[in-house]
């Protein structure tokens, strides 16, 4: 197994993580780092554990019954699974965007301001500023500025997904996890999300799970290939897609299995 660690500063470090759903093992001894202000992509066939690994990074698996985990996930060198860590606070700092856009059935404004309000921001003006700033960062402001109080459900799929990204950004996270963020979107909406990811990485660490290998090669700086719960190979995206060291990686990305 060739796992070349990144030279960049790692904001998250996964250390010898094993995970079981009941009796079945979903992650096997995964060790890797997610560098700050870079995009890390996780690729692999369905059921290889890439979404499970992503969900480990902000303790989303806590909510899954019969899910058992071993190992350490360090965020800024502190184990997020330590007993004194508040999972809600972790999920604020490490936000997540899901496969299907899932805005709240409320207005666009309320979708974005919901998080900050829960975290205690009451001042209307301050909320207005946060909403404008985050919608701009999510490249959605120009499209919705005249209808902030319309229902978010009236937006197109791509706009809804960018709204979900804005909702994540509103609570000022440091890491953004994306689980197949474009698989329910058309090519144009996908291109918009991809250029958004490119912009986001100047300020955040982005980890993206994708089935679409071209997408991984387009947007990411580092790529990890997973198979049957193991991290088979991790390296710069260029190396993985030009000269993978492992035959398994080679066969997968060239479409010889999967």
């Amino acid at each position: 197994m060739v796992i070349k660690m990144t030279e960049q500063h790692e904001i998250i470090h996964v250390d010898h993580v094993n995970l079981w759903y009941g009796d079945s093992m979903a992650l096997r001894d995964v060790t890797m780092g997610m560098p700050d202000r870079q995009v890390t992509a996780l690729i692999g066939p369905s059921g290889c554990g890439k979404s499970t690994l992503l969900r480990c990074l902000n303790r989303m698996n806590d909510l899954v019954e019969q899910c058992r985990m071993q190992g350490v996930v360090n965020f800024h060198s502190k184990n997020i699974y330590a007993s004194d860590v508040d999972p809600v606070e972790i999920r604020r700092k490490i936000g997540m965007v899901f496969q299907r856009p899932n805005p709240f059935p409320k207005s666009i404004y309320e979708n974005v301001s919901y998080g900050p309000r829960v975290h205690g921001v009451k001042d209307r003006k301050q909320l207005d500023t946060i909403v404008e700033k985050t919608l701009k960062r999510a490249a959605l402001w120009d499209e919705v500025k005249d209808r902030l109080h319309d229902s978010a459900m009236g937006l197109s799929g791509g706009q809804q997904q960018r709204l979900c990204i804005a909702r994540t950004l509103a609570v000022e996270p440091e890491v953004i996890l994306m689980d197949e963020p474009c698989s329910a979107l058309d090519p144009i909406a996908t291109a918009k999300i991809e250029s958004l990811i490119e912009e986001l990485k100047t300020e955040y660490c982005v980890v993206i799970v994708t089935h679409n290998m071209q997408q991984a090669s387009r947007v990411s700086d580092y790529t990890g290939f997973m198979y049957l719960g193991e991290l088979v190979e991790f390296g710069t995206t260029r190396q993985i897609f030009e000269t993978p060291h492992e035959t398994l990686t080679e066969n997968y990305i060239t479409g010889r299995f999967g």
Partner: peptide, 9 residues
């Protein structure tokens, strides 16, 4: 086909 790895090479 946007080939990668050995196919591209």
């Amino acid at each position: 086909y946007q080939p990668v790895a050995r196919d591209l090479r």
